[in-house]
Amino acid sequence: MSNILKIFKIGGGIIDDEQQLRLFLAELAQVPEQKILVHGGGKGASQMLTDLGIAPKMVQGRRITDAATLDIVTMFYAGKTNKQVVALLQSFGVDALGLSGADGNAIRATRRPVKEIDYGFVGDLPLDSINTVLVNQLLRAGLMPVFCAITHDGQGQLLNTNADTIASTLARALADLYEVELHFCFEKDGVLADINDEQSVIPRITAEQYQQLKAEGIIAAGMVPKLDNAFAALEAGVERVVIENALKINEPIKTILCQQ
C-alpha cells in the first residue's frame, strides 16, 4: 500500500452547486492514493438561519456561532451536507465514512477565548487535537474519512471550526505517518498573479516568494489565511500543498507551494 496520503479540502462554492459537487467527487474517486476529504458548509445553513428569523453574523469572514446558530450549522454540516457527500462518493465506488470531530474523538478542539470579539461556540485546534490512531486505523481499513467542520471539546460541547484549519491540522498531525499532500480545492485554477486574468496561474510559490507577493498585494484578502495555513503545514513536515480547481484535480494546471 502506498504511503502517500492526499488530504482535500473543498469550500462552500462547490458544496452549494450540486452539479459541481458531483463532478468534483467523480474526479476525487479517480485519485488512486489514500485520501481524506474535509468540507465546509456552504450557504444552506445561512439560508435556514434567515428563514427562521435569525440573522447570520459574520466578522472578517468568520461566523459568529451562538447557540441557535450552532444547532443549525451542526444539522447542515454534520448532517445533510456530510451525508450527501458520503452518499455521492459511495455511488462512485469510494467506501467513505462521514465524521464530525466528536465521532471516535477524532478531533478535539478548545473553545476560542473571548478577546475583542466573542465568536461563541467556535473551536480552535491545538497541535494534539487529532486522534491519529483512529484516523490511521480508518485509512488502513480501506475507508476514506470525510470530515465536516464540527468538532467537540471532550466535555460534551460541539464547536464550529474552520474547515481550512481542520485540513491543515490533519495534514500536520499525519505527516509523521504518511507522505502528506494537502490540497485546497476551489473555483480558480490556482493562485492568480492577476485576479482578473484566469490564465495567470502562478505554478510554484516558495515561502520567500509568498512574503513578497503579500507585500505587493498580489496575494490578499481571503487567500492570505489559506496560504498562511499552507506554509505552516509545510514547516511542520507536510510534503507539499496544492491550490487547484476542484473540477481539475487530475489535470496539471495548479499552484504548488513549497518551502524553497
Rank of each mutant, 00 (worst) to 15 (best):
M48G: 01
G156M: 12
N3H: 12
I219D: 06
K115D: 13
F147N: 05
Q199N: 15
F231P: 00
Q212Y: 10
Q47D: 14
V73W: 01
E116N: 11
S2H: 10
Q19T: 13
L37G: 01
Q84L: 13
A230I: 05
S100A: 14
P203C: 10
F184S: 00
A233V: 00
A171E: 06
G53N: 07
F231A: 00
Q34T: 08
D71Y: 02
K188A: 15
K226N: 11
D71A: 11
S91W: 01
N229M: 03
P145D: 04
G41R: 09
I36F: 03
A102N: 02
V59L: 05
G40E: 09
D194Y: 13
L37K: 07
V38L: 10
D17M: 02
A236P: 00
A29W: 03
L70V: 07
G12K: 09
D228I: 08
G79F: 09
M48W: 12
A207R: 15
N229C: 04
P126N: 07
G154D: 01
Q30P: 02
D153N: 15
D95E: 12
A215L: 13
L25E: 07
L97Y: 12
T161E: 06
Q84C: 05
Q157V: 10
N160G: 09
G41Q: 11
V73G: 08
K115T: 14
Q90S: 11
E198W: 08
M144L: 14
Q34L: 09
L5C: 04
N245Y: 09
I117Q: 08
I256V: 15
K80D: 07
A175G: 00
K9Y: 08
V224T: 14
H183I: 09
A109I: 00
N196L: 14
A55C: 06
G156I: 09
G154W: 00
A167L: 07
T169N: 11
L37D: 03
Q47E: 14
F121P: 01
G40K: 11
E244T: 14
V59F: 04
R140N: 14
V242R: 12
